[in-house]
């Protein structure tokens, strides 16, 4: 096994080009467990900790460019206003110790359907910035997950950052685990309201071979909100709409039975989380509207 310690991003890309099988290591949450338990012996480990810019973020006019290694703790503490969905998801990641080291680059690189960041990234409509010596690509999150623990990265590419639009409306994230802390998702759900475009986006975790959106649910809800003039009148969403939304979310999943939960429970729980997060986001939207109107 080789251990490469590039001091700059350019060196890292050169190393990855030279050793396409090299496994990048940043927070170590996934890869170190596999090494400790003899499940994986990569030829080359590529340490990304020395590349400072991976741990930084830039807040632009419309978008946050979030370095791949910005620890979840920093996201929770510093980006709650800009990226509320991801901040909530970050708070549910494993333990404080792991949140101090892990970042979205690891979730994306591993591309496990159980990664906590995925539903929030899907709901926010993030774009993944990947790079190689050949250049930089921007991959929409919708195209990023290609299979079970597979993603759209080429062998010589590394994840540089994620571009996420600053929230233009309320976002929520909810995750079911069988413990009240430090737990891997049985299933998870992210929801973002986008009042500017009058759309909603969703993300489902741990309930399909890859993280997925519940597109039929999004389309249904957007249409229902539009038709009822809800964006403007800020009225309560009728329970029937919430129910239908929940059912469509549930129906968008293709879960399996495993040690963490049954497929039918996952479907059920997704529906509950969809209904609740819709309630929370819509309450917040209405509250904001009221505040604005009062002001």
């Amino acid at each position: 096994m080789d251990f490469l310690r590039p001091a700059s991003w350019e060196e890292a890309l050169a190393a990855k080009a030279e050793h396409p099988t090299a496994v990048p290591i940043a927070g170590g949450t996934d890869i170190m467990v596999e090494i400790n338990f003899d499940q994986r012996r990569p030829d080359v480990l590529l340490d990304l900790n020395r590349i400072g810019e991976l741990q930084e973020w830039e807040t632009g006019e419309e978008t946050v460019r979030l370095g791949a290694s910005v620890p979840y703790t920093r996201i929770m503490e510093n980006l709650r206003a800009e990226l509320p969905g991801l901040a909530l998801a970050s708070h549910t990641v494993a333990s404080p110790q792991i949140r101090n080291r892990g970042g979205v680059g690891g979730n994306l690189g591993t591309a496990s359907p159980a990664g906590d960041a995925h539903p929030a990234l899907l709901a926010a409509g993030a774009v993944v910035e990947v790079a190689s010596v050949r250049g930089t690509r921007l991959i929409p999150i919708d195209d990023f997950y290609t299979g079970v623990k597979r993603n759209a990265l080429a062998p010589d590419e590394l994840i540089r950052a994620v571009h996420i639009k600053k929230a233009d409306g309320p976002q929520q994230f909810s995750k079911v685990g069988t413990r009240n802390a430090m737990v891997i998702a049985v299933c998870a759900f992210g929801l973002a309201l986008h009042p500017e475009t009058r759309t909603v986006r969703t993300g489902i975790g741990s309930a399909a071979p890859t993280p997925v959106r519940a597109r039929p649910a999004e389309e249904f809800l957007a249409a229902a909100l539009d038709e009822g003039g809800f964006w403007d009148n800020g009225k309560l969403i009728p329970p029937a709409v919430a129910r239908q939304f929940a059912e469509l979310v549930s129906g968008s999943a293709s879960p399996i039975d495993d040690v963490r939960g049954s497929a039918s429970y996952r479907r059920h729980a997704l529906g509950v989380m969809a209904r609740r997060t819709l309630g929370w986001t819509w309450d917040e939207y209405r509250g904001n509207e009221r505040t604005i109107r009062c002001a």
Binding site: F3, I25, G27, G28, T29, M32, V33, I35, N36, L45, D47, P71, A94, S95, P96, Q97, I98, N100, R101, M182
Partner: peptide, 21 residues
């Protein structure tokens, strides 16, 4: 990384030393 018994400060930050190469 599921028990915290190996927690150390790495540049001041608490981390699981089992997950640091």
């Amino acid at each position: 990384g599921e028990c915290g018994s190996c927690t150390v400060r790495l540049d001041g930050v608490p981390v699981c030393s089992c997950l640091v190469a």
